[in-house]
Each structure stands twice: as C-alpha cells, then as structure tokens.
Design a protein around this nucleic acid. Sequence first.
DNA 1: CTGTTGCGTTCACCGATCCA
DNA 2: TGGATCGGTGAACGCAACAG
Length: 315
Amino acid sequence: MKTIDHFNLRNFDLNLLIAFDAMMEELNVTRAAARLKIQQPAMSHALKTLRMLFDDELFVRVGQVMKPTSRAISLASRVRSVLQKAEDALSFSEQFSPLTEQRTFRLGFSSELEVHLLPELMTHLRKVAPGVRVIASYAGRQNLHGLLERGEIDLALGCFGEQGQWHRSEVLFAEQLACCFNPALMPFSTPLSQDDYLNQPHALMSFSGNLMGCVENAFNRAGATLNAVFSAQNFLALLSFAQNSPVLVTLPNRIARRYCAMFGLVYCEVPLQLEVFPNSIVWPVNAENDPALEWLREQIRAVNQRIESADVMLH
DNA sequence: CTGTTGCGTTCACCGATCCA
DNA sequence: TGGATCGGTGAACGCAACAG
C-alpha cells in the first residue's frame, strides 16, 4: 500500500478542497461561501490560498459567473473523489442490528405511498425492529431536494422525476394510471371506450397547483386532452367527490384498486397508451454507506414486493 | 495565567461588469 | 451613463487552542 506523506498533508488545509468543490458546484464565491456556512471574504481568502497553492487562477470571472480554468476542471473530479472517500470513511459505522438498534428514521412520502405503503411498512418494522421509530412527512417534487439537503428526512419515497447530483435513487415500482367512477351516476360498461373516457369531466391528483399535475405531459404525449374540472393533493377528496358526482377520477393504479370499492366506485383501466410513472426511493449520496439506511431500503423493497404480490392475487 | 497563533467575522473600500 | 451587483483586499477585532 502506498504510504501517506503526513508532513506534507499537515501543511495543506483539507478544508481548502471543500472550498474548491463548493466553488465548482456554485461557480460563484458568495453562494459557495453560503454553502459552506462562511462569509464571502473568508471564501475569497480560501480561493486566494488555493490559487497560491495550485499556482493557477482556478476560477476567472467571466460576466456574472466564475469560470473554472482547465486546471480547475482537471482537478475537480480528483478532488470530488478524495472528498467522497473521506466522507465514506467517516460515515462508516457498525453493522445495523434491527433487533437491538434504537433509531428514529425520518421518511418523506408522496401522499398515495403514505397511505398505500407506510402502514404495511410500519407493521413490518414493529415486528423485525422494535426499537425503530419512524417520523413520516409529506415529500413532493417541489420540496424533495430541500428536505434531503437540509437533512430533514433520511430518505423519500414517491414519484419525483429527475434527481440531483447529490442524491441517489432506485426505482421501487412503475405505477400506471387507472380510473374509477360511480356507476349509478355514470352508466358506462367496462372496459371504458376511449371516447367515453375522454368526453367526461375528470378529477385528478395534482401537487403542482394546476389541474393536471405531473400527468399532463403523459396525456399530451398520448395525444389526449382531459376535461379536468377538479384536482386535489389527497386522493380521498377525489374519491369522495366521484361518489356524489358524475365525474371520472384518474389516479395511481394501486390506490384505485384498493379504495374504489370502499367508495362504491367501479375500477377500470385508462383506455389510453400512457407511459408509466416510476416510484422511487431517494436518499442523499452522503448516506450511501449508512448500514441502517441500507437495511431500511431492503425492508421497503420487501414490503413493496409483498404488496405487489397481494395486489396480483386480489385482481 | 499570559502571549501567540490561526481562523473567521465585520466593515470599508475599490474595480469590473451588467443592465436599464 | 449611473446604479446595482459581485469579487477582491485589507484592517481591526473576537474567539479558541495551544505552548511556555
């Protein structure tokens, strides 16, 4: 194994590498300083020291951004690799022991997964890890990154779209859309025809403050336009609405299957070729090697698998 | 206990650049 | 062209750690 020159490293403030990495991320001294929770002059001093040590400007101002020099660009990946290894080494802990461990996990859920997966996950965790506690909160596309970045949640579950560079994700399952309606108010036979589906007023789940929410693009790509008259974040409001009104509710397949009958609604598939919506587990990259979170992800996968098998048996 | 050192902060000021 | 914004620099100061 190659030996480490401790004397040389002792004379190099490793915080400078963190400053360098922050500068590469932000390309702005003030924002890089804010990222490190120091003031801009301190960041400026750090940059000055880095310039002296590497004998290169590293970042030159071009207009409103600090453009990295070729030397900075070539250093970037090596610096990131060093920091990643340091973080991995420091975050390493003993193997997680579910039977004895006392730990509180903070999980962010999209609203449908909170209802559909969380109860079964909790039932499972109570059996296999009695010392584990869970604080669940809402996580959506808009607030996911902030929640993970600020460490307010350990991981998130839901349909979130693209992930940032500092996050890792794995697809848990691919969700399709389904629809349901009150047969007493809408006397359609199932499966629904495309015309019947498209010509009726619709109610959908939306977290973005508009009527169609994140499914809008999927319908656009399928060349379909829905007459959306109502959207809500909570699917119970949609089902309750459809119970009393002649309206088609389009919502995630799993939710539709499980809750339609409770509201006296008929379940059917959406008569369109729509893309699927991947529901993922998302966690910050710095928790990559946390054995407790690794264990938890495994439990989530197992519980999800069980739910999927039960759904298949039922339908 | 005291002086030294290192680091970060606030403050002030300057220069470069952007934009209305 | 002047105001706004941003980065760079230096002085003064506070604080904590450390050595003697």
